[in-house]
């Protein structure tokens, strides 16, 4: 793909590894928060491609594993703060499920910094920008993930 070549070129020119991130954002809080970051013209790295889902509770563990399997270097799931869920309690289910995914990934040797969950409210544009910036910063030293169970 042309843009993939371009991304690689950019990475080569700057001589720096650019991690590929898939960010699952809930529609009501985190996606709205990322909108606010945009409205506020906050700058953050372009590594994360957002997928807006209705609720963090709808993020099945298979989405996360699949993103890694398709070559993501990092995966983020972001939802409303506990108690603020637009759907009342979807994020509580998400929290429990994602806790388990995280422990499982760590157990098979995936660096803890490759998978992250955050609470970002619709008012937290700054926090969203920070979450992405931090994630990219933490992923860079880890290098490419090279899929699940692949030799590095």
């Amino acid at each position: 793909m042309a843009e993939a070549v371009e991304v690689r070129k950019v990475a080569q020119e700057s001589g720096e590894f650019e991690p590929k991130i898939v960010a699952f954002l809930c529609k009501w809080c985190s996606s709205a928060g990322s909108d606010l970051a945009g409205v506020s013209r906050l700058q953050y790295p372009s590594n994360a491609v957002p997928i807006t889902v209705p609720c963090s509770g709808s993020v099945s563990p298979i989405y996360i594993l699949s993103a890694f399997n398709k070559g993501a270097d990092g995966v983020l799931v972001s939802g409303c703060h506990p108690g603020d869920c637009h759907y009342l309690k979807g994020n509580f289910f998400a929290r429990r499920r994602i806790y388990l995914v995280q422990k499982l990934l760590q157990f098979i040797g995936v660096e803890p910094n490759r998978f992250r969950m955050s609470w970002v409210s619709a008012a937290e544009g700054t926090k969203y920008a920070q979450v992405i910036a931090d994630f990219v910063k933490d992923l860079k030293p880890l290098g490419p993930h090279g899929k699940l169970g692949a030799k590095r």
Binding site: L65, S66, F68, N69, K147, L148, G149, A150, K151
Partner: peptide, 8 residues
């Protein structure tokens, strides 16, 4: 039978 697919 790729390691990543099997891991998945």
């Amino acid at each position: 039978p790729d390691a990543s697919e099997s891991a998945m």
